[in-house]
Design a protein around this nucleic acid. Structure first.
Length: 471
RNA sequence: GGUGGGUUGGCCGAGAGGCGAGGCAACGGACUGCAAAUCCGUUUACACGGGUUCAAAUCCCGUACCCACCUCCA
């Protein structure tokens, strides 16, 4: 079976049929870097990271382009408000975004083009659209250039809307527009805006409109037609609709499949800066290990809304620790087993529109079987189970043994010293237990627990681990 | 006003006409010196009202509530 995805444009499950066999080109909308990323933003990132890992498992060569839109009204406003240069605001948030990718185990995209670095490509596209009669410089001399929605009969095809039924923008003065739905490809420079935020064009100085950067950069790095275009569901209209219209109007077939992830809600509303109900990635990973946060975000189907709750997050952390516990205990007995085979049922679930919940059921059943073998002491079966579990976890970016999860603050010298000291206490406890001096044995265990070290007895002797959680 | 999506057991979360996904929690049992971990077992479902069908959580009609988009948004 090949991967099938739900295409939001046709609202059908569609088989992936790459433009170039063996290669998949994906564009997904990164971030307009007006603030640091919250966990809703990173959900999108995790979804596309899983897609990428699954495609690479299947042997595809994957090229992922994710934009950084580093100029827009809000970035300029924020700079004006804090007195910082606008580009400093954008860059700071871009770095926070990269830190969030990394802490959640998302592989970086193949390339992350910035809007401000692609003005010539945008100018070329605007010129082509004017030439073809689908765009026009504003008639009020503002230097704006608009896309002419009425000149493109297919407008609305992505979000299944008709221009005539759309609610008119509440206050929007028509400015130089022919139709209120026309959107800015290019915005003329305004009084008071920094000179550094404008570029020369045949239509005067100005800066990019919101949607054009994605059309221009997708074409540059993926070609006029590519396989998958993704992003959050809230981008479907107007952002993706406008991208599609301008690219097609410029003569490019554009994306074959549109893939949109559902939102992450908090308090019955989409997590967003304007509502103020945001949870920053950097904050949440202080409460729960990053890998557990990733598990929480991955575990629901990508097209289902996640209603965020602390309880559900904590539950996800517990559920994941069961999986992680198996992996660690099994690896101690039979070695890493990092070349395992993915069970067919798991693959079938993933091929069916990335049905991670069904795939996780397979994973958890394999863990349960593996746990039975752990007790039974049958190394070859255990190795097979561990290999399968690690292979499945790797697809989801959740393999706890992957070096990417090694804490960056870990100092190996400190760790070695700790291991020696803990082992000494564990040896003393074993001695006490051997002498049936359980009072002493329990006192040692309590002392270790008080220091955050958990001890458990297994047929192979005591093993220890650091308690997770509050850090 | 227009366009979509949703409402499943104590909780999370799949499924989409027959056969009770899976996890968390709870309870009972096994193992253990006691624990922990693990295993075995048990319990509670498909918003409401109609309809179609031999059979509906799943299809149709209606009602209620929730979410998203049509304005910046992952």
């Amino acid at each position: 079976m090949t991967l099938h995805l739900f295409d939001s444009a046709t609202r059908r499950i569609t088989p992936l049929d790459p433009v170039v066999p063996g290669r998949v080109g994906i564009y997904h909308c990164g971030l307009t870097v007006q603030g640091p990323p919250h966990i809703g933003h990173i959900r999108k990132e995790v979804v596309f990271d899983v897609l990428r890992r699954w495609l690479e498992r299947a042997g595809y060569e994957v090229r992922i382009i994710a934009n950084v839109t580093d100029i827009d009204d809000k970035i300029l406003a924020k700079g004006a408000e804090t007195g910082e240069p606008w580009f400093a605001v954008a860059y700071r948030n871009e770095r926070a975004l990269h830190a969030a990718y990394e802490v959640l185990g998302c592989q970086p995209p193949t390339y992350e083009p910035r809007a401000t670095g692609h003005v010539p490509e945008m100018i070329g596209m605007i010129a082509a659209l004017i030439e073809r009669g689908h765009a026009y410089p504003a008639e009020d001399g503002s230097g704006d250039v608009y896309f002419d929605v009425r000149s493109w009969p297919a407008y609305g095809e992505l979000s299944n809307q008709s221009v005539n039924d759309m609610q008119a923008a509440p206050d929007a003065p028509l400015e130089g527009k022919r139709d209120p739905r026309d959107f800015a490809l290019w915005k003329g420079h305004k009084e008071g805006e920094p000179e550094s935020a404008s570029w020369p064009t045949p239509w005067g100085r100005g800066r990019p409109g919101w949607h054009l950067e994605c059309s221009a950069m997708a074409a540059k790095y993926l070609g006029p037609e590519f396989d998958i275009h993704g992003g959050g569901l809230d981008l479907r209209f107007p952002h993706h609709e406008n991208e599609l219209a301008q690219s097609r109007a410029a003569g490019q077939p554009f994306a074959r499949i549109w893939m949109h992830n559902a939102m992450l809600n908090l308090g019955n509303a989409k997590m967003s800066k304007s509502v103020g109900n945001t949870l920053m990635v950097s904050e949440v990973v202080k409460r729960v290990p990053p890998i557990a946060l990733r598990y929480y975000l991955v575990a629901a189907h990508y097209r289902s809304i996640i209603e965020f709750s602390e309880e559900a997050l904590a539950e996800a952390a517990t559920a994941f620790s069961r999986i992680e516990g198996f992996v660690r205990r099994a690896a101690e007995l039979v070695g890493p087993c990092d070349d395992g085979k993915i069970p067919d049922a798991f693959a079938a679930a993933m091929d069916d529109d990335l049905s991670v919940p069904a795939a996780l059921a397979v994973l958890q059943e394999t863990v349960a079987e593996g746990n039975k073998l752990l007790g039974g002491g049958e190394p070859s079966g255990l190795a097979t189970a561990l290999g399968a579990v690690r292979a499945m976890l790797d697809v989801l970016g959740l393999d706890p043994l992957d070096p990417m999860w090694a804490s960056s603050s870990t100092d190996t010298a400190v760790e070695d010293a700790l291991a020696v000291l803990v082992q000494r206490l564990i040896d003393q406890r074993a001695e006490a237990r051997g002498a049936r001096d359980f009072a002493t044995a329990d006192r040692i265990r309590d002392q270790l627990a008080a220091a955050g070290v958990e001890v458990e007895d297994t047929p192979q002797g005591a093993r220890w681990s650091l308690k997770e959680g509050e850090r």
